[in-house]
Design a protein around this nucleic acid. Structure first.
Length: 443
DNA sequence: TCTGGGGTCCTAGGACCC
DNA sequence: TCTGGGGTCCTAGGACCC
C-alpha cells in the first residue's frame, strides 16, 4: 500500500473556457458575447463555448449545427491553436516555478505536486500559493484559471471544478468522503455515459452507492481494471503519482470529410497526405514506430480499424503511405466513408536507420506533407490577418467572393469592420503568435 | 442538421513458444 | 485418449478524457 498523503499538496489547474477566453482576449468586440470555438464546417462540433454561449445551452462536443440553432448570433470561430499553445506554455511554466512535478493533461489543464519540493502544506498555505498562481496566470495571460487542491489527483481535480470559473478550492484533509459521497458517479474520472448507465441499472447513482458495492461485484460489472479502480476511488483512495514525463504511445491524423467519399482515388490521395503528416510529426518528435493503423468511419458512424506491424520501426512517409494503402485496400468503402485516419504506434525513440523503407520501385510517390494550395484563397472565421492599409485584424466571415475583417487586436478598443475581395493582395495571413523580443526560439 | 481530433488504457481472442 | 498452462505479441474494438 502506498502511503496516503496527509497534506493537500496535489494541485489541479484548469483554464476557464480556454479557447473561447483566448479569443475574447484577442478580439475585444467579442468580450461579454457568446463565442463558440470548434469545427466550423457542416460536420463540426463545439470544442469550447464561452460562458455567455453556455447560457444558451451550448456545450462542448455539441454539433455545430445544433449550437447555431441555439444561438445564431454567437461568433463561431475555427480556432487558433498556435495561440492556445503559446498561452499554455506560459501557464505550464508558471506551474513549474511551483514544482518540477507538473503533469499536463491537455493545453488547458495540469496537475502539480507541491510535496516534491517542500512539506508542511496546510490548507492556508496551499490556498496562498494557489491564489498567487491564479494572479500570476492572469497577469501573464489575461485569463482566469480555476484551481483545486487536495490529498490526491482525484480530489484536486474535483475541487478545481467546484467553483468555476475563477475558482479556488482546497479540500481539507479528512473531509474527502464528505465531498465525494453525495456526488453522482458521473463526476468520477473514468465514469462516462456507458459506465454510468451500467451502474444505474445496478442501482448505483452516487459515489456513496458505489462505495457500498463489493469490489468483486464491481469487477464483474466493469472488468478487472475499471472495477478495482472505481472501488478505490469511491472510497477516496487514490495514490496515483503526478507524472511529469509521459512518453507518447502513438501519433495519428484523421479527417472527417464534408461529404461521404466513395471515390477510391480521393481516399488514396488523402491516405498519402495523412501518412506524410504523421511522418512529419514523428520526425519532429524524434520518434518512429512499427505499427501502422488505418481508421475509417462509415456513413452510419460505425468505425473500423485495420493495423499491421512492420518488422522494424519507421518514420518514413512512403513506407507509412504504402502500408496504409494496403490496409485501406482491405476495407470495403463502396458505401462511402465520412472519416479517414492514419496512425503509427509502437513508438521508440528515433529510428537509427530506416531498414524497412519501401523499395524505390513502389508506386507510392513522396506525398506533399501539406494539402495543395487551394485555387481560391480560403479565409477561416477567427483567423488573424493584416491589411497593408488598415493594419491588424481578424476574419469575421467570408463568402461570395468577399471577406469581412474586423480591425482590432488584444491591445486595441473594439474595432471597425471592412469588407474586401477574397483575393485582395493587400490582405495577408498574420502569425497568431508574435515572437517576444529577445525570447528563446532563435537557437 | 446529428455526432471533431488528438490521445490513453483495457479487453478478448488467436498465434506462437516453451 | 481426453486433450497443460503460462507468457508474449498482435489485432480489433470500445470507453474515456479534454
Amino acid at each position: 500500500m502506498a502511503a496516503v498523503r496527509s497534506e493537500p499538496s496535489v494541485l489541479h489547474l484548469d483554464l476557464d473556457a480556454f479557447f473561447a477566453a483566448v479569443e475574447q482576449r484577442d478580439k475585444p468586440s467579442l468580450r461579454g458575447k457568446p463565442v463558440v470555438v470548434g469545427g466550423i464546417g457542416p460536420r463540426g462540433v463545439v470544442a469550447t463555448a464561452s460562458y455567455e454561449a453556455r447560457a444558451f445551452g451550448i456545450g462542448s462536443a455539441m454539433p455545430a449545427t445544433q449550437a447555431r440553432a441555439l444561438c445564431p448570433n454567437a461568433a463561431f470561430l475555427g480556432g487558433r491553436f498556435e495561440a492556445y499553445r503559446a498561452v499554455s506554455e506560459i501557464v505550464m511554466g508558471l506551474l513549474r516555478e511551483l514544482s518540477p512535478a507538473v503533469e499536463p493533461l491537455s493545453l488547458d489543464e495540469a496537475f502539480a505536486d507541491l510535496a516534491v519540493t517542500d512539506s508542511g502544506w496546510d490548507v492556508e498555505r496551499v490556498r496562498t500559493v494557489a491564489a498567487d498562481l491564479k494572479a500570476a496566470v492572469h497577469d501573464a495571460t489575461g485569463l482566469t484559471a480555476s484551481v483545486g487542491a487536495g490529498t490526491s489527483k482525484l480530489i484536486a481535480k474535483i475541487a478545481s471544478d467546484l467553483d468555476k470559473p475563477d475558482g479556488l478550492v482546497v479540500v481539507e484533509p479528512g473531509t474527502e468522503l464528505d465531498l465525494l459521497h453525495p456526488m453522482p458517479v458521473r463526476k468520477l474520472w473514468t465514469v462516462g455515459p456507458a459506465t454510468a448507465e451500467r451502474l444505474r441499472r445496478a442501482g448505483v447513482h452516487t459515489v456513496a452507492d458505489l462505495a457500498a458495492v463489493d469490489e468483486t461485484e464491481l469487477v464483474g460489472l466493469l472488468g478487472q481494471a475499471h472495477g478495482k479502480l472505481l472501488a478505490r476511488l469511491s472510497r477516496g483512495e487514490d495514490d496515483r503519482p503526478v507524472s511529469p514525463h509521459r512518453e507518447s504511445k502513438s501519433v495519428s491524423v484523421e479527417d472527417t470529410f464534408e461529404r461521404d467519399v466513395v471515390e477510391r482515388a480521393l481516399l488514396t490521395e488523402n491516405c498519402d497526405r495523412m501518412a506524410a503528416t504523421v511522418s512529419r510529426r514523428l520526425r519532429a518528435a524524434s520518434l518512429s514506430g512499427r505499427t501502422v493503423t488505418v481508421k475509417i468511419r462509415r456513413h452510419d458512424f460505425q468505425s473500423h480499424t485495420r493495423s499491421t506491424t512492420l518488422p522494424g520501426p519507421t518514420d518514413d512517409a512512403r513506407t507509412i503511405a504504402a502500408t496504409a494503402r494496403r490496409l485501406l485496400a482491405e476495407i470495403d468503402t463502396s458505401d462511402g466513408i465520412r472519416l479517414l485516419g492514419v496512425g503509427v504506434s509502437g513508438l521508440v525513440d528515433w529510428a537509427q536507420e530506416d531498414l524497412f523503407a519501401e523499395d524505390a520501385d513502389d508506386e507510392v510517390p513522396e506525398p506533399a506533407p501539406e494539402p495543395a494550395e487551394p485555387a481560391v484563397r480560403r479565409w477561416t472565421p477567427g483567423q488573424d490577418v493584416r491589411h497593408a492599409v488598415h493594419g491588424d485584424g481578424w476574419v469575421q466571415g467570408s463568402g461570395v467572393g468577399r471577406v469581412t475583417v474586423r480591425f482590432e487586436t488584444r491591445w486595441t478598443p473594439p474595432g471597425r469592420i471592412r469588407t474586401f475581395a477574397i483575393d485582395d493582395p493587400d490582405l495577408t495571413e498574420r502569425p497568431a503568435v508574435v515572437p517576444e523580443s529577445g525570447a528563446a526560439g532563435a537557437g
